[in-house]
């Protein structure tokens, strides 16, 4: 297994390089003078010249890429002109909040989604299946930002169960309980869509597996139905569910951008949107590369989980 993990880590290097190339190329599409674009139209000529020198902007695309890559490998993601601080510092400050939000959501949607899918398949066409199918349909059809807004309206404004927005109260202690209170609504709103997708997939994966011959074998052995469903069938279905969990993690991370806007959550998503609107190019570039790299690492964990589940994947 260690060998497999190492192999996957090594294979992540070209992926990371590829991602950096893609981001670099997209950013190279920016029309006009890159230095002006990066520094904004009020930049002084000296600053423009300095930046041109630092980033090699007067050179060709390929040397520019390697200069940029070299800086990044050393942890230098550039400086945000709008915030006037290093990009990496800003991203790292914000990333924790996003991780808390997206992580909670991911755990929530994985557990709820898989459980709902299994129950739905086991009770196919029963009332539980129909109810779950309907909820799931609404879940995958509602924009998460709209759902978040409605939750604020109902649970925060009308019922006053939860705070309207933010991660911490302006005054008061920063305890875990306070955090959970603030986290509940955004995490739930964020989890809903992914839960729907996972539940649907889990349901069809389970239906597929339940028709397999080895399920009949288990039944022919006299294995209890609960065990047939939750051990035999779910284990086999997880093989096709786990990769989707990996993809859904990306969707949760994506959805976090909207939810952070709606709930004023101080994460990287909001930072990115603000940066785009302010045309703070280096902050966008750095933020995107950083998050993408984290996501690649997460997907390696997903692959490792898959390999542990399925012995047929070569270790």
């Amino acid at each position: 297994m260690t060998g497999y993990i190492l192999k996957r880590l090594v294979s992540a290097i070209p992926v990371l390089l590829g991602i950096s190339v893609i981001v670099f190329l997209i950013m190279a599409m920016i029309p006009g003078d890159p230095a002006t674009a990066i520094l904004g139209s009020y930049a002084t000529p000296e600053n423009v010249e300095k930046l041109n020198r630092d980033l090699g902007l007067d050179q060709g695309l390929v040397p520019r890429y390697f200069i940029w890559l070299g800086h990044m490998v050393q942890g230098d993601f550039g400086r945000s002109f709008a915030l006037n601080r290093p990009v990496l510092d800003e991203v790292l400050d914000r990333f924790g909040a996003t991780l808390i939000l997206a992580g909670t959501s991911f755990v929530l949607c994985s557990l709820l989604g898989v459980a709902a899918g299994v129950v739905s398949a086991a009770r196919q066409y029963g009332w539980a299946d129909k109810a779950i199918t309907f909820v799931v349909l609404v879940g995958i059809s509602i924009p998460s930002f709209f759902l978040g807004m409605m939750m604020i309206l109902i649970f925060a404004v009308q019922l006053r169960w939860f705070p309207v927005s933010g991660m911490w109260p302006i005054y008061g202690d920063r305890t875990l309980w306070v955090l959970l209170d603030h986290l509940f609504m955004p995490a739930l709103a964020l989890a809903v869509v992914a839960t729907g997708v996972i539940a649907r997939l889990a349901r069809s994966a389970m239906l597929e597996v339940l028709r397999q011959d080895f399920i009949r074998t288990a039944r022919a052995k006299g294995v209890r139905e609960g065990r047939v469903i939750w051990r035999h069938a779910l284990r086999a279905a997880m093989v096709s569910i786990i990769p989707v969990l990996g993809i859904q993690a990306g969707f949760v991370l994506s959805g976090a951008v909207y939810i952070e806007m709606v709930f004023q959550w101080p994460g990287v998503g909001r930072m990115l949107v603000d940066a785009i609107l302010k045309r703070d190019i280096l902050l966008v570039q750095g933020g995107v590369v950083f998050i993408a790299a984290c996501y690649v690492m997460f997907n390696i964990m997903v692959d490792v989980a898959q390999a542990m589940l399925d012995p047929r994947i070569k270790t």
Binding site: G18, I22, I26, M27, A292
Partner: peptide, 25 residues
């Protein structure tokens, strides 16, 4: 497919945001 995998290596909104950032809203 390696190229496709790389594109899928982004949470989708990052790619969309990067494109919009480059081309402008």
């Amino acid at each position: 497919m390696r190229g496709v995998d790389m594109l899928m290596g982004f949470p989708y909104i990052l790619l969309a945001l990067a494109i919009v950032a480059a081309l402008g809203p």
